[in-house]
């Protein structure tokens, strides 16, 4: 009885979460423009989507933005994590808290504050306008904490003697870091990079505030199309984005952290 209730509960929960997306995906194959009438199966919207120049531009902006911001955030974030890891005491706690704020802060605050900052800076650099550059800086900014958050735990569980052993065997601090520490935290860095990539793809609000007039990401173009009226192309585009993000998350999660841990923790007891 209880087990049955549990199952029903789970089913209802999943239904609530995924029903809207399911409807969206189904209607992206709907031959009728109506959102309530089923007019038969078609791939027409997908075909139109591929032919739409502005959507193609938005797609390439979104992908390059996600790639570049993830790359920058990974470099900056991984270095920051190493730095934070070596800090001590109250200072470390403060720095950690400050780096975590962007994660919990509402996107709207993040987007608005970035916009205010850019407009302020444009006073001093009149030649610069909102555009791809500001988008890239914004995405990199909100991505950095995600990289830090995925790299730091890995550093924490790293045996501090590993790095010292490298020094002991003749490595300079830099060599020791690259030869030993970096090797050990690579999986966490890759996870962080993929997380950052996904977060960038996923973003709407920050992009909306900090993009220029001419630029669009997929999410901002969907928004502006939706405002202009019903267009089933949006359904098709949203469906594609949903599937893409789903696939990405699947890949990230398949980087099994327990496997990485096993490689790190040496079994110390017992003679076989």
């Amino acid at each position: 009885m209880i087990r049955l209730l549990k199952k029903i509960y789970l089913a209802v929960m999943l239904l609530f979460m995924y029903a809207p997306i399911a409807v969206l995906i189904v209607y992206s194959f709907n031959a009728s423009r109506s959102r309530s009438v089923w007019g038969g199966f078609t791939l027409d919207w997908y075909a139109q989507l591929l032919r739409d120049k502005s959507i193609q531009r938005a797609l390439s902006t979104t992908l390059s933005l996600a790639f570049l911001s993830a790359l920058l955030a990974t470099i900056i974030g991984a270095a920051a994590a190493v730095g934070i890891h070596s800090m001590r005491g109250a200072f470390k706690k403060t720095v950690l808290a400050v780096t975590n704020i962007p994660v919990i802060m509402p996107d709207i605050v993040m987007g608005l504050s970035l916009l205010v900052l850019y407009t302020y800076l444009f006073h001093f650099f009149p030649g610069i306008k909102l555009g791809y550059g500001t988008l890239l800086v914004s995405h990199t900014t909100f991505n950095i904490p995600y990289v830090i958050l995925s790299v730091l735990p890995k550093l924490k569980q790293l045996d501090p003697n590993l790095y010292e052993a490298a020094l002991d065997l003749g490595c300079t601090p830099i060599k020791g870091f690259f030869k030993v520490v970096l090797q050990e935290i690579t999986s966490a860095i890759v996870t962080g990079a993929m997380l950052a990539f996904t977060m960038s793809l996923d973003d709407f609000i920050v992009s909306y505030f900090t993009k220029g007039d001419g630029d669009n990401t997929l999410s901002t173009i969907i928004y502006s199309m939706a405002r202009r009226g019903v267009n089933p192309k949006i359904n098709a585009l949203s469906a594609i984005m949903f599937v893409a993000v789903l696939l990405l998350l699947y890949v990230i999660n398949s980087f099994d952290p327990s496997k990485a841990q096993k490689a790190n923790g040496l079994g110390l007891e017992g003679e076989s």
């Binding site: 003697n161 010292e164 052993a165 090797q183 490689a263 790190n264 040496l266 110390l268």
Partner: peptide, 9 residues
């Protein structure tokens, strides 16, 4: 080292 600190990779 006390816990050997072998390079696991």
């Amino acid at each position: 080292f006390q816990k050997y600190a072998l390079f696991p990779n």
